[in-house]
Amino acid sequence: MTGGEVVLDVDGLRMRYGATEVLHDVALRAHRGEVLALLGPNGAGKTTTIEILEGFRLRSAGRVEVLGVDPAHGDERWRARLGVVLQSWRDHGKWRVHELLTHLGSYYTPYSDGAIQRPWDAAELIAAVGLTEHAGQKIRTLSGGQRRRLDVAIGIVGRPEVLFLDEPTVGFDPAARYEFHELVQRLAGDQGTTILLTTHDLDEAGKLADRILILTAGRIVAAGTAADLTRQIAGEDEVRWTLDGKPCVESTKDSTVFVRELFTRYGEAIGELEVRRASLEDTYLTLVRQSEVAR
């Protein structure tokens, strides 16, 4: 997507809790304005990785830089350039939407610089996340989807250069999910925000991310665009046909070559040809299965 400034840079990241190693040698890199998805099953180490990058958890080993700073030593000026979308529960229930965003935004005023005016104006921000009708409402009266949009608003009130989203759409209905995806795409597109999100939802990763990193059992087993990943790994196309009316099926890495040979050999006898390309889902499941066998 972009060849700009490197915003996230992780190399050889390891994390150990006592004797259990939960991250082995994780490496990733993101440029300005890029959306990265960390995809993997539960317990793969996604949350640990993102919390290390947020500066909320100390790593065991490796090099980590977020906006050129080691999160373990990030100061408040660094913190002001970061956005963290937290899973809310019932905090600030008595506050009103507008009141809370104005309050949290005020901490960012001293951190404006030439390019970025901080914080985001509360009314504008509320409009951007579609909560204008609810601006004066008490937070505990919001629905689940509205609350989640407020969480995003809180995460971006300081106009962050990097935004971290941990499992952002868990518990969303399809409509809320759609609106949320729109919002993330707008942030990355219009504001040039670099975004790292974790998800175990494959469609979400495919839809939102410029690049997907597949994390299983603490290792990044594959990385690339959705198309790259499908091409790169194990995914075999499935070819079905009939030979003199008898159904046949075969999996192959290169379906074009296979089908050409099929016609060369049997010609007119072939019917009902059907080629199903390997999907991202097949690729993902294959990878997860492989790494589980290896473990």
Partner: peptide, 20 residues
């Protein structure tokens, strides 16, 4: 209570939020 419901974590994610 503030730690349990995440109020404190929000403060931590905000620049100088713990002081405030």
């Amino acid at each position: 209570a503030d730690r349990e419901d995440g109020t404190l974590l929000r403060a931590k994610a905000t620049p100088n939020g713990m002081l405030g």
